[in-house]
Design a protein around this nucleic acid. Structure first.
Lengths: 349, 349
DNA sequence: CAACAAATTGTGAGCGTTCACAAAGAGCCG
DNA sequence: CGGCTCTTTGTGAACGCTCACAATTTGTTG
């Protein structure tokens, strides 16, 4: 008779310290019905052969309310084999893109019954491996060598996932693949039609991101037959102040550049400040472009011309929802996210 | 004989679609030991009367590795009565403070064996009520009328919590209480010593935050005997461009203000741009202060003078860790977070 | 070499749910 | 009013794990 089971001391303590979480058992007792009845009422699973009379339902609901009962999600999840949680793994809250992704997920997922949780840094692997969520959107971790192993392993465990990455994903998985090359080339081409002295503020980030961006700068110059002038290239740290200083230096050069290509929107925004500081007009005296298409750049005045993707995070989230609903195509879907030049206020033809 | 239990069809399906998550049972089988042994090896709980021989341990560990086994956190949590998860509930990733809090939590909590998850928006209540985490740091939700009910209810359930709030918390709970008034007064006092025409860029946010900030502006003027000149007050939207425009207007006034008090750092940063744009020097021609002490403001050049708290999020996180470890004082702790004026590059005596 | 102690491993209940299936109650007709 | 069907409620195993306690093996000593 399980009722008489004497709990070991440790449990008692736990229960004391844990306070009183009402369980389905308490509700059943309070409403004077069986556990099943409560469960059926709450999970609404009384459509078929099993239905609960209205008075009973009301009684149960009243007891639920009175006790402040909320089903334990872990227990429910264990039994049902799903957690109703979706994780969004991102690297850093300072990156506008990661924030946009998290925000989109937070908006959309609850509508579909999923609780979104944001995981910062590298702990998401452990979390997902230990069954913390039904699905995960894996943001862009530039420094990650490869998540092949994690992704396959999670897939084997039946975890739905969508990966935002360029190349790092094994075939067969859903991927949002940023395609930066064409947009960057387009940008350089545009600048090279009306400028010869095009400066560059690049990042000294260890992260892999900006490397290809600077490469695009160099390639663009070469294509236009403009020799790369090292004195027009400045390397800034992540710190905005260093980007500002870099731009200040460039703009005070005897033979001032007429355009600045910044490998990141943040740097471009600082470059505008530097220009203003020196009494230069943007875009009349100096044209500035960034990379990333961040919301900030759009919200500034003048709005920043930038190379970047259209914001398609919603699409990513919906992709994951499809997977969660097991709408599974034979092959993984690869959404290309083409980056292009967004002409805005800091350039002119 | 439980071994012969025939699983209902639905489970079979689930198992197919869920892929193969190895369980402790699989590990036991592979290592040819009992479930207990595996459990003991993995949870390291073999110190006292129960110890496992080295060879056995190795065998178990090998099997774990081979199968790629990771303990299911939900199941473990259910049994142990704790989830090892700590939630950070914040309102909006656009607020630098919320980001700083989340970042601090992400850095510190894993060191103590807790998995931090960030919850955006209002869903954190449901998450916590359903037993999603052992503890929660409740960020500053300006629009929340009162979380009294939630906080007491969670406490009853034994959830550790620290609340960041001004007033909204029932007595007896741990609170980080921002005390903005003195700092704001100090700031206005400082400005009023050397300025008479002090403009203000304020937010038209529905959120409660900036209200007291503008009140402090008005009060500061009054105290200094300066009449409030409505033409020197501009209301901006959340959009940076509108703050920029507001500042531009103010700075083009016939009788230009010599200082601008912005109710938010973001606005102040825009005001600096506007000043530069008009060829004004900061702080020589125009002095600018913000509110919030955001990291961005510190990283800009010149660094922004601002009224704000010292970053004490670490302290908040450690407070929660104490609660989780049941180092519980009789009464709730109230850490006052006094806001003060941080003199930096955009003002001068 | 028997008998006991110490070291190691196994058993099984239970954490809070869900749900297939069994059981009980209500309604109807001959 | 017994036997049948249709509603409604109850029973109990299982999800994956932990841990008190029982059972077993090994080591030590009289």
């Amino acid at each position: 008779m399980p009722i008489e089971f004497k709990k070991p001391a440790v449990y008692q303590e736990l229960h004391v310290s844990q306070g009183s979480k009402p369980t389905i058992r308490d509700v059943a007792k309070a409403a004077d019905v069986s556990l099943t009845t409560v469960s059926y009422v709450l999970s609404g699973r009384h459509g078929g052969t099993t239905r609960i009379s209205q008075p009973t339902q009301d009684r149960v609901l009243a007891a639920v309310k009175e006790l402040g009962y909320v089903p334990n999600q872990a227990a429910r999840g264990m039994r049902r084999g799903k957690t109703d949680v979706v994780a969004v793994a991102i690297g850093n809250l300072d990156w506008p893109w990661d924030r946009a992704l998290a925000t989109a997920a937070t908006r959309i997922l609850p509508e579909h019954g999923y609780q979104p949780v944001i995981l910062l840094g590298d702990d998401w692997r452990k979390f997902m491996m230990s069954g913390g969520a039904d699905g995960v959107i894996i943001g862009y971790f530039p420094e990650a060598k490869s998540d092949d192993e994690t992704v396959t392993e999670l897939a084997r465990r039946g975890v739905a996932q969508v990966v935002i990455s360029g190349t790092m994903v094994p075939a067969g998985f859903d991927v949002l693949a940023p395609e930066t090359d064409e947009g960057l080339a387009e940008c350089m081409e545009f600048l090279a039609t009306s400028h010869r002295r095009i400066a560059c503020v690049r990042r000294a980030d260890p992260a892999g991101r900006p490397k290809s961006r600077f490469a695009a700068y160099a390639a663009g110059l070469e294509k236009a037959g403009i020799p790369l002038d090292e004195s027009l290239v400045r390397t800034s740290q992540h710190h905005p102040a260093t980007a500002y200083q870099s731009a200040l230096e460039l703009l005070q050069l005897p033979d001032r550049p007429t355009a600045i290509f910044c490998t990141d929107d943040m740097e471009a925004l600082q470059a505008i400040r530097a220009a203003y500081r020196l009494g230069l007009r943007v875009p009349e005296d100096i044209q500035i472009v960034g990379v990333g298409n961040s919301t900030e750049g759009q919200e500034y005045d003048p709005a920043l011309t930038t190379v970047g993707p259209d914001p398609i995070f919603e699409q990513v989230v919906r992709m994951l929802l499809d997977r969660l609903a097991e709408i599974t195509p034979a092959e993984g879907i690869r959404i290309a996210s083409p980056w292009k030049l967004h002409h805005r206020g800091t350039t002119q033809p």
